[in-house]
Design a protein around this nucleic acid. Structure first.
Lengths: 249, 249
DNA sequence: AAATAAATTGCAAAAAACTGCAGATTATAT
DNA sequence: ATATAATCTGCAGTTTTTTGCAATTTATTT
């Protein structure tokens, strides 16, 4: 096997799953871990992916969530997504936001579940289309290059015309006092529209985002019905959040 | 065996398999490894392939094209896309349809060209997002699982509210008498809306689709301003189409 | 703090690339 | 047609690259 083929295969895996473990690649391609590690090192140097402890992650996602460079944080996202999936009732109409955690949710939706899903995210849409029983509706609009989601007034207007049972959203920052905040004004406008369109809003949020805030405010905490983290609901880190009118999962 | 023959044989192998091992070539052509190495070195210098440790890979290998469908059909589609790209003026507002030929067009758009592109296709959207100077707007709607494009009344309504300089569309079937036809009723409705939204419509169509028809009609041939095939405009196969009010490229 | 997993380092075997050279082939000039 | 020059090809020896392994260090989890 040629080195280039191997490296291309690694890039394909990363593009497909957004993350890979070195051990998985080694087994998949039947080469030693050392070889995979060296390949990943080169690809990292060439800016084709981002090498992290234990594996590699795609560039596109780290750009926005620069904090999240830890591959184990991704397993936390799976934990969150697993909890979220349990909220999905047969036949429900839901919205799924962009971002890695929500993408994980899209992945974990069982094949046999019948759902109608709205989304703004190209990646989520792709993922959902692989499931035969899900009707996928993409909210159109101008596409943001880095997040690969539809943004802008057009998308917001589209959102104003839909009504869903559940919105599953992520956030840049969340604080018990300041609520949900973002770095980007456009994103805030969008998320406001998403929350407005939903009967109930579920926030998916890894614990490292707790007690952080930024410039623009999406909403107060009590606009959120359920907040899901990878922690157990009785964890001390969640103390400050327990007062609010938010269900913790 | 002549050097030219050998090198052509090497190029053929690369075109066929996207990659070759020097040892395999040496055995196949029954020459020494050194000769093959020298040939490959020359071909690399001539930009006909890329030499790598242990072998050679095709130039496009690292990007996409790894999915190996009919390689000849692909090159035809590239030919068509190359002609289409020349129609793109700086700053134009265009629509790009789904389908492999249109996807090829999206790929071939130069990085530095400033454009505003509407599309219904997830794949085209992804491709366009890789180019920094293109504003991409996705027409939302229900997503078709197989074609991975937005369809249905919502998408059609969105299309009714936009106006573009050029629409680049594909078709299932085209006939000099019956015009453009499709197998699928919904697709026809969509394409009608696309054509309506455009000042000028360009049809991208490989020659094997010429003189074929199906159930539902999208439009007459004269609704199309330009028809691009992989053939030269004076090819006999295009005779029947020359009468109509369509520019052939 | 201990246990586990991953990264790093040095090393050796194997594969591939490079180099110079000699014989063979082809092209060119007389 | 023959001599000469230029090119091509295969071989052998040397150098470089790649790869896997083991020992050590570093990072992460419980």
């Amino acid at each position: 096997m040629l080195k280039e083929e191997r490296q291309q295969a690694i890039l394909n895996e990363v593009a497909l799953h957004n993350r890979v473990l070195l051990t998985d690649i080694a087994e998949l391609l039947d080469v030693s871990i050392d070889t995979v590690r060296r390949d990943v090192k080169e690809l990292d140097a060439a800016q084709k992916l981002r090498k992290v402890h234990g594996g590699a992650i795609s560039l596109g996602f780290t750009n926005q969530h620069t904090r999240n460079t830890n591959i184990y944080a991704l397993t936390e996202k799976v934990k969150i997504a697993e909890k979220a999936v349990k909220l999905l009732k047969e036949g429900a109409v839901i919205f799924i936001d962009g971002g890695t955690t929500c993408l994980e949710l899209a992945r974990l939706i069982p094949e046999n579940k019948k759902l109608t899903c709205f989304t703004l995210s190209l990646q989520v849409a792709f993922e959902l289309l692989t499931k035969p029983n899900i009707e996928v509706i993409f909210i159109g609009g101008q596409l943001s290059r880095d997040a690969q989601i539809a943004i802008g007034p057009h998308a917001i207007h589209q959102l104003s015309e839909i009504r869903v049972d559940y919105s599953f959203i992520g956030t840049g920052y969340v604080d018990s006092l300041y609520g949900l905040t973002e770095f980007d004004w456009d994103i805030v406008q969008l998320k406001k529209a998403v929350i407005k369109a939903a009967k109930k809003t579920v926030l998916l949020c890894i614990s490292e985002k707790l007690n952080s805030q930024h410039r623009y405010k999406t909403c107060d905490l009590n606009a959120i019905n359920t907040m899901i983290t990878e922690l157990e609901p009785d964890n001390n880190l969640l103390n400050l959040f327990r007062d609010h009118d938010v269900r913790l999962l």
